[in-house]
Computed example of a mutant assay.
Amino acid sequence: MSNRPAISEEAIVLRGPLVTSFSDEEFFQFCQDNRDLRLERTSDHEIIFMSPAGFLSSSYSAEVVFQLSLWNKQTRLGRVGESSAAYVLPDKATLSPDASWFSQAAWARVPAELRNRFLPICPEFVVEVKSPSDRIPTLQAKMQQWLHNGTQLGFLLDCETETAWVYRPDQPAEELHGYDRHLSGEAVLPGFALDLRALREE
């Protein structure tokens, strides 16, 4: 499989030696200088400008982060990130999921001077929530990229159609329909279950 991530047709992409030569520190500073933009970087160091999420998809993402944070506060097994947290992955891409979690062991491997930067690790658990500008095939390719880099469990959520995909290493994605259910955190997040009923628009 290719390490190159899919890029949405709606995304604006900066290419060329000026931006692809950015170091990790220079890209971090570029993001700090453009805080009102949602930015990611491909494994080829092309910079992707993504559309802001609509309100509903943003609120769904916030609910996922809330449930994950509540579980983590009780268990203290790791750290939770929301959509502004970014990770520099082994394939050299820098990506930001809508929600993420990584273990205390992974946190211990991050040098102190990098802990307020984009973290040089791959989270064990990620969630991507479809926004109005997203395309499902692009998000599915992104989920595969997370797995390729070391993620152990991932959820892709299309709340408008009440569809969920569960991603596990070396397995086909499991597609589920209807949000009258919970998604288990399995062995990665012991005791965690995402209540999809909270992501329904009543």
Rank of each mutant, 00 (worst) to 15 (best):
M1H: 08
S2Y: 11
R4T: 14
R4G: 01
P5H: 06
P5C: 02
P5G: 08
V13A: 08
R15G: 00
G16F: 10
L18D: 04
V19R: 04
F30E: 10
R38I: 04
E40A: 08
D44R: 15
H45G: 04
H45T: 03
H45I: 01
I47F: 05
F49M: 15
S51C: 13
S51G: 07
A53R: 07
A53N: 11
G54Y: 11
S59M: 14
Y60F: 09
Y60T: 11
V64I: 12
Q67D: 06
S69Y: 02
W71G: 06
Q74S: 15
R76N: 14
R79V: 09
S83R: 09
S84T: 08
Y87I: 07
V88R: 14
A93N: 08
L95N: 00
S96I: 01
P97E: 08
P97Q: 04
A99H: 01
A99L: 13
S100H: 02
S100Q: 12
F102W: 15
F102S: 05
F102R: 01
P111A: 07
R115V: 02
R117Y: 10
P120A: 10
I121Y: 00
C122D: 09
P123G: 04
E128S: 03
E128Y: 06
V129N: 07
V129F: 02
S131C: 13
P132M: 08
P132Q: 08
P132I: 11
S133D: 14
R135P: 00
R135T: 11
P137N: 09
L139I: 11
A141N: 14
Q144H: 13
Q152C: 06
F155D: 12
C159R: 10
E162R: 04
A164C: 13
W165K: 05
V166R: 04
Y167I: 05
P169Q: 11
P172M: 10
A173R: 06
A173H: 01
E175A: 13
A187Q: 13
A187K: 12
P190K: 05
G191P: 12
G191L: 07
A193T: 05
L194P: 00
A198W: 03
L199H: 05
